[in-house]
């Protein structure tokens, strides 16, 4: 065979040999160990540090919140509906990212250097799940935001850790009282609450037109000491359930009278602040739920006193406590003036 062909064939064999050696040399170790891939990569991929840690991780430090949450509707594990801590507060762990590659088991965790989110805009967060929308299953609690809360934040009324409201269920629903009997029994109230339930410069608030369910609940609260007022407690303890029902029926049927002492200017200023109230107490002071008090017909002084009582803690109420915290003294005055100026219908 001619020399050039022999050399060519030898050259090709040499190239082939070099190629084969290169293949063996450069084949990553652990390749083909389990199949056509780098066997070591399995453990590498598995080595990443998890970021989400589960609710139990939070319990040791936030036991109180955890207990609150675990008893509430956001932890109904029996039907598989569990909104874990990290759903709203974000992942409790972080993973280092060195350059572009991961497979790292290092990184800071909360509470070390990693701050978690305390959501401030509940309207945005809660509506992710609870805004009424086609496609959401019927069993999912949903609201039409505009009519449910206006511009109000959800946290004003709801505790996000246990959001279900208990107010409605505690209010005695059937009003079996008799207004005529109630009128007779109300003689004892006139001294403080005025004739016909309209109090003008008297120590007690006006009762005319007040929601019956609220009236009964309030009287009961005095009776048990949940609301503290020596005078009222004495009365309440002496009143039977029937008495409470009759009185409630009597006062609810009376027509309320607006206090005319409210200053016009302050009332106008209070309109803006009242946006925090209208979801429950209505724009005109008439509550949307009978378990909640009407504000219409009350004097400005009484309303200011009530708000301050909530603020100081002498009057209890989770929801109201949350709201009055956000009110300045001026706002308290103004919003009281606004509701005091609301007209009775």
């Amino acid at each position: 065979m001619p020399r050039h062909i022999v050399r060519l064939v030898l050259l090709m064999v040499a190239i082939g040999a070099v190629g084969y050696v290169a293949k063996i040399f450069f084949t990553a170790d652990s390749f083909y160990e389990y199949g056509h891939y780098r066997g070591k990569s399995v453990a590498e991929i598995a080595s990443d540090k998890p970021k989400y840690k589960g609710s139990e991780y939070c319990e040791s430090c936030h036991a109180e919140r955890f207990a609150e949450w675990s008893k509430g509707v956001h932890n109904k594990s029996d039907i598989g509906k569990v909104v874990k801590c990290e759903v709203c507060h974000g992942a409790a762990g972080e993973r280092d990212v060195r350059g572009m590659f991961e497979h790292l088991a290092t990184g800071v965790d909360h509470p070390n250097k990693l701050k978690l989110v305390v959501p401030t805009d509940a309207r945005k967060l809660c509506t992710l799940c609870h805004e009424k929308m086609p496609g959401r299953p019927a069993q999912q609690p949903q609201i039409v935001v505009a009519s449910h809360a206006g511009t109000q934040q959800c946290t004003v009324c709801h505790n996000p850790h246990s959001p279900k409201l208990n107010l409605v269920s505690t209010a005695p629903t059937p009003i079996r009282g008799d207004a005529a009997r109630g009128k007779a029994k109300a003689a004892a109230c006139v001294g403080c609450h005025g004739a016909e339930g309209v109090s003008v410069n008297l120590p007690g608030p006006s009762l005319a037109g007040q929601n019956a369910a609220y009236f009964i609940a309030a009287l009961k609260a005095y009776g048990t000491g949940a609301r503290d007022n020596p005078m009222m407690s004495a009365f309440a303890k002496g009143a039977s359930d029937d008495d409470a029902q009759d009185l409630a029926a009597y006062f609810a049927a009376l027509k309320c009278q607006s206090s005319l002492t409210a200053e016009k200017q302050a009332a106008a200023a209070g309109r803006a602040t009242a946006s925090k109230c209208i979801a429950c107490h209505g724009a005109d002071g008439v509550s949307s739920n009978r378990a909640w008090p009407n504000l219409v017909g009350h004097s400005k002084d009484y309303l200011v006193a009530a708000l301050r009582a909530y603020k100081s803690g002498s009057r209890k109420g989770n929801m109201m406590a949350g709201i009055v915290k956000t009110l300045s003294d001026a706002e308290t005055e103004n919003v009281a003036a606004y509701y005091a100026g609301a007209s009775c219908k």
């Binding site: 598995a46 540090k49 998890p50 989400y52 039907i79 569990v82 990290e86 999912q140």
Partner: peptide, 22 residues
């Protein structure tokens, strides 16, 4: 990866972990 780094540690994938409705 079905969060391979989680499931090999006995955890649930992150999406399953946070799903509020199961």
């Amino acid at each position: 990866t079905w969060c391979y780094h989680r499931i090999t540690k006995g955890l649930q994938p992150a999406c399953v972990e946070v799903c509020p409705v199961g």
